[in-house]
Design a binder for these strands. Structure first.
Lengths: 193, 193, 193, 193
DNA sequence: CATGAATGAGTGTTCATTCAT
DNA sequence: GATGAATGAACACTCATTCAT
């Protein structure tokens, strides 16, 4: 098995465990065992448990960014882009809840783990944030969205999706998260007006 | 000092430390020391570190709920209520960042800590959620907000505020978070239409 | 039991184990067990295994220095002082071989453990070295010893005793190390002339 | 490259690393890397890390013994032989500090590593000790040295040189260790009288 | 001959919790 | 009420050694 494949395997398994039990309640031994390698061998791939957490964020944000990037490249209205993104996101959430959960629970919540050398660790998610920015600016250019502070617009998109994600994680939503897609995308679009 | 006073003192100090260093990186010894009591004495107030975390959530949600409750009781439009809430929230965030941070970082992120016996631990925040529901239903009743799935509306309000809260915690917003109040409340109101 | 007493107890037991098995082959668990305390409690006395090693050196050198200091204060010839010191040292070696062995094996051999912040860790033994210096200078003043480089004289005294110590540790000397006292002290005195 | 050459290369590099960082703080991987072979290949030359330590001692003692042996064969007074040996030793120490340091730090200090099956591991140095014995007995035969217990005489020679070696390793001697040669050899000769 | 992936027992250290005083 | 000494299970990480290739 190639080194890169093993690395991905470790990340995907860790993502799952971290999202379910949290970073601090998941041990390196458990991660190693989950993919049938030894503890020692784990350290041939990641120099520390912490570095695995960082690599996992990069892994997830890259995936999210890719989805959004391809949507940004389509030639439809911004409203439609938002809708596509919501559908795509909910689908992703449905298929890979552990990735999204990891992003929300571990990355957003354990900021101290990711910051180093005076930089806040925010840059790990930069590739995704950049795509959000493209999405927003497109809508502003076409007058679909009003010109507001970027951080507010950013909060509208990611916050609303984050809210529903949290509720989904709490298992209190009805079956089939996709059914919320229309209302959600409409809400986001409205919030950006 | 009254037992209740000590309890609040412990909670407020814990809130501060948990929000800065995370739940798992804050030790009981540190909490005890921060308010000059012994470790042993700490356990006269809370049977476990975990129970302190739960009590802290109740403490914070109660505060948030109180603010919102009094707003809900005013006789202004729902749009205005949202605005009052946003201002009130941002003010609270400014004055007690550790409480909000705790709520977002510890409660939302370490769900495993709060759930027990099959119940998700969500009920700890119920008193706050209930007020949100009142706020939403009021707006629907007056036709200011459109009738949508409660969870979607809930995500709009809390998600958008959550987004700005996260960014605030990352220290990337300009000074004076209050300046975002208008844009934020407008965005929320729009998202609820 | 007083904190200071426990500390001494830990040091004396550690001295014994370190001298027999070496620093790296002695575990904190073994040390703790040897005096019937828990691993955790060990760390209430010493912040690290390493710090115990340092405290142990200070402990031993202080003892050695005390012996030598009282000899230095007597009003006899330097030749006689050397003899008294040799007898005293051999006696100490006989009674507390682990302390001397520790000094030779751990301190002299694992210099990296004791040095920090650019200082060589040599100062831990300073109190003893200072007494050696007094002994030498006394002899020089009375013309019993010739004036040579301090380091050479220092090597004569400590080296010769170190040599016999090593051989004693190897169990190749005849029983009763005291029988070497006369020859050793004569040799040392001669070497200093 | 011949097997023997590789072995020597490993030993010389290990000697360097062991003397600097100690036996237990030097890993097999580091040794292997230092001479650009794989860990696995290392084990084609030495069955264990421990056996490398033993081979290293043999390597160093053989070198020291050779120097001393050739001096023993010269036809000069014993006093002169001591002087030649001191000069030769100091020169060796200057040129190959890692070898001497290894001898003092690892061999003398980690006796447990070298002893096995009831034998003290002292025999590894026998070839060198034998030459010391020859040197001493020569001096006794010519009445330059007085007849004393062999172990005492042995301690005089090796101890005094050991003392200066330690000080040299501590970097507290003035530049040019050779300047101590005369005083040292005089001291040794005197101690043997 | 040569590699380095893989192992897993072992280490120092931490920390929630208890309990005698 | 109040202390802090004492516990010990648990964890991240290391490293000598093996072995398939």
């Amino acid at each position: 098995m190639l080194k890169k494949e093993r690395e991905s395997q470790i990340i995907e398994s860790a993502l799952d465990m971290f999202s379910k039990k949290g970073f601090y309640c998941t041990t390196v031994a458990q991660i190693a065992k989950s993919i049938n390698i030894s503890v020692g061998h784990f350290y041939n791939f990641f120099p520390s448990k912490n570095s695995l957490a960082k690599a996992s964020i990069t892994f997830v944000t890259k995936k999210l960014a890719q989805e959004l990037s391809s949507i940004n490249k389509t030639h439809v209205s911004s409203k439609e882009k938002i809708h596509l993104f919501v559908v795509s996101y909910l689908n992703f959430l449905d298929q890979n809840p552990q990735m999204i959960d990891y992003f929300f629970k571990v990355y957003l919540a354990n900021r101290e783990m990711f910051s180093e050398d005076g930089d806040s660790g925010f840059k790990l998610a930069k590739v995704f944030i950049d795509e959000i920015e493209v999405l927003i600016n497109d809508g502003i250019k076409t007058n679909e969205f009003s010109q507001k502070d970027f951080y507010v617009s950013f909060s509208c998109i990611t916050g609303i999706l984050g809210g529903i994600t949290f509720l989904n994680g709490e298992d209190i939503l009805d079956e089939g998260i996709q059914k919320y897609a229309n209302e959600l995308s409409l809400s986001i679009v409205n919030s950006l007006r």
